[in-house]
Design a protein around this nucleic acid. Structure first.
Lengths: 237, 237
DNA sequence: CGGACAATTGAAGCCGGTCAAAACTGGTGG
DNA sequence: CCACCAGTTTTGACCGGCTTCAATTGTCCG
C-alpha cells in the first residue's frame, strides 16, 4: 500500500508518455531537444516567467516550488530521472505558476514549445495519453493536500523521507542515501528548519535513520513507515 | 489581482469547454445526459468508487473533499453553476481519488463515461481543449497548496469567504449571502469548528461580516481582503 | 586560517486543537 | 400551538506542537 502510494507520486515518465508516438513525431522531439548540465541550485524557470518549452530530467533531482509570502519557498514536488516537467504552463498557455531549480548537479534536456505543441496537434493519441497522465497527477496532488492539511510534521517528514528515498533510489538500486539540505527538506515538509532538525534528531535517537551531515539514510524502513502513520491515507475500500 | 485569482479558481465551465465541439458531438453529449435533483448532503460519488461518467452542475453548490484519517473531511474545492466535475477519474481510468456531495439543494446533469470518451477520441480539438483546461487547473491547486501550507487560519478564512461569495454570487448578481454550515466551512478552511467560530466572531466584531446563523454576508469587502493578506500570493513579477 | 554558510541547540510564546458543556435552532408530534 | 429532541453553534478552559528569535557549534573552501 505504501508502494502503491509511491507509485502514485511519480509523474510523467517520458518513456511512458512518448511510447504512443510514431517514429516521425518522436524523432521530431528528440531532434529539436537540447541537453545541458546544471550545477546545484540553478534555476530553470521562475514563477511568472514565460514558458518556452518543456524539460526532461536525464539525471539529478529537481525541486518544484512556490514562493511563500515570507520569502521562503514551499517545495511541492521533486522530479527525478526520466520525469518531464514544465509542461503545464506550456499546455495552458499561461505564465509559470511555480519555479523549478536543481537540488544537485543535474543533466536536463529541453524540448522547445513549438515542437511539443506541433506533435500534440498532430497526434490525438498523444493528446489522450497526456490527458490521462495529467488526470492521474491530480490524485497525487490531492494526496499531497491531504497530507499537508491533516498530518503532523513528524508524520509528514517520515513520509517525505520514504518518498525521497524512492526518488534517490532511481539512480542505482543500492544506495539509499538522501542528499538534501536541511532547508530544502524543511521547505518540502512544510515546517521550520529548527523543527525539522529536532524531529530528525528524534528519528536518529530512535535508530530509524542515520545522518551524516548532508545526507540521511533510512535504517529502519518499517519504523519510518510506522511514524508516517499512513492509516487511512489512500482510498481504503 | 484578487479578481484574477478568483478567476483562476473557476474550473471547467462546461460552455467554454464544449464550445469547440461540432454539432454532432455536442448533441451526442446532451442527448445521452440525464438531469437529477438532489437534496442537501447527498453524495454523488465516493473515494475509491468506480467512475461511470461526469457531472455538470445546473444549479447549487457541490463540495469536493477527501476523508481525513480522523474521520473528518477536507474540502478542497467547491463547484458552482456551470462547472463540470468527476472527469479526472474518468480520464485517468482510475478509482475516484475524492468524494463529491451537495452543499445544498442542487440540480445536476450526468453524462455517461462512454459518450464522453467517445467524443474525446473523435475530436482532437476537444482533447486539446481539455488539456489546456486541466493544465490551468494545476495552477489553481498550487495556489491552494500554498494557501494551506503557509497562511494562518485567519487569512485562509478571509480568503475562502471571498471565494465563496464569488461562488454564491453566480446565481444572481445581487445576493452575496454565503450559506454553508460551520462544519463545512471549517473543513474548507482546514481548521476545527471551534476555531472557525472564534475567528468569525472576530470578523463580526470588526464589522467585516454579518452572520445570521446559517448564512454569512460580507459587509466590508476591502477589510476582508486586507485580512486575507494576499500580498505575494500570485505571481508577482 | 578565516569567513561564510549550514546545522544545531535553547528558551519563550502563541496559534490552534481538543475536550466539555451551555445556548440556540429548527423540526416533529402530541 | 407548545413542548421536546436532535443537531448545530457558541463559549470556556487547557494544553501541546510549532514557530520564532537568538546564540553556538560545525563544516566546507578559498
Amino acid at each position: 500500500m505504501l508502494e502503491e502510494f509511491l507509485y502514485e507520486n511519480r509523474r510523467f515518465k517520458a518513456d511512458r508518455i512518448f511510447e504512443c508516438l510514431g517514429a516521425a513525431d518522436l524523432e521530431m522531439l528528440t531532434r529539436s531537444s537540447v541537453t545541458h548540465r546544471y550545477k546545484k541550485g540553478e534555476i530553470l524557470f521562475r514563477e511568472g516567467g514565460i514558458p518556452t518549452g518543456i524539460y526532461h530530467v536525464k539525471s539529478g533531482l529537481i525541486k518544484k516550488y512556490k514562493q511563500t509570502s515570507r520569502g521562503g519557498e514551499q517545495i511541492f514536488y521533486v522530479c527525478s530521472t526520466g520525469e518531464l516537467f514544465g509542461y503545464h504552463a506550456v499546455l495552458s498557455d499561461e505564465y509559470y505558476p511555480d519555479s523549478a531549480a536543481t537540488i544537485d548537479h543535474a543533466e536536463i534536456s529541453f524540448i522547445p514549445k513549438d515542437a511539443f505543441l506541433t506533435v500534440i496537434h498532430r497526434s490525438n493519441a498523444f493528446s489522450n495519453s497526456l490527458l490521462k497522465a495529467l488526470s492521474h497527477e491530480f490524485s497525487m496532488y490531492l494526496n499531497y493536500i491531504n497530507n499537508l492539511g491533516t498530518r503532523t510534521v513528524r508524520e509528514r517528514l517520515a513520509f517525505d523521507l520514504l518518498l525521497l528515498e524512492d526518488k534517490f533510489n532511481l539512480h542505482d538500486g543500492n544506495v539509499t542515501e538522501i542528499f538534501m539540505s536541511r532547508t530544502d527538506l524543511a521547505n518540502m515538509v512544510g515546517t521550520a528548519k529548527e523543527t525539522l532538525v529536532r524531529v530528525l534528531l528524534d528519528f536518529t535517537n530512535a535508530g530509524l535513520i542515520a545522518k551524516t551531515d548532508r545526507s540521511i539514510t533510512i535504517l529502519d524502513r518499517v519504523g519510518i513507515i510506522r511514524e508516517a502513520n499512513l492509516r487511512g491515507f489512500n482510498r481504503e475500500t
